[in-house]
């Protein structure tokens, strides 16, 4: 029997979980893409430093879609296969902006403490 008293225990640690959402959102803010393309873009944007477990993208995309930050539909990919393409919404752009500033402030504070 699963213990299920409180919030669901995430497969990833909390912090990283939140980050994946943010990364996916950022990736989509440049251009619509399908799931695999998003993973690729994140890799590119981070200059190879971030290599997330690719499967973890999909729960993140579902979360973002349920929050109305992105939307999706079926389209033909570059090799003519059917794929689900995601695009960011206006709400998503706004959320991204807020998340980015929050994250930067957090990083600033941590740096202050750790180096101070």
């Amino acid at each position: 029997m699963r213990l299920r008293f409180g919030k669901r225990h995430p497969a990833e640690p909390d912090a990283l979980r939140g980050s994946i959402d943010m990364l996916a959102l950022k990736a989509l803010s440049l251009e619509p893409a399908h799931g695999w393309g998003i993973g690729l873009r994140i890799q590119q944007l981070s200059r190879g430093r971030l290599d997330v477990n690719q499967g973890s993208l999909y729960p993140a995309l579902q979360r973002l879609e349920h929050r109305g930050l992105i939307e999706s539909d079926w389209q033909r990919s570059e090799n003519n296969r059917r794929a689900r393409y995601y695009s960011i919404t206006r709400l998503g752009r706004k959320a991204l902006g807020e998340e980015v500033s929050k994250w930067l402030r957090f990083a600033e504070t941590m740096t202050l403490v750790l180096e101070g």
Partner: peptide
Amino acid sequence: ARFGGVERYRQEMREGR
């Protein structure tokens, strides 16, 4: 392998739904 545990993500998505 690079995808990660398929079953785990399946579960996670189902739970999210």
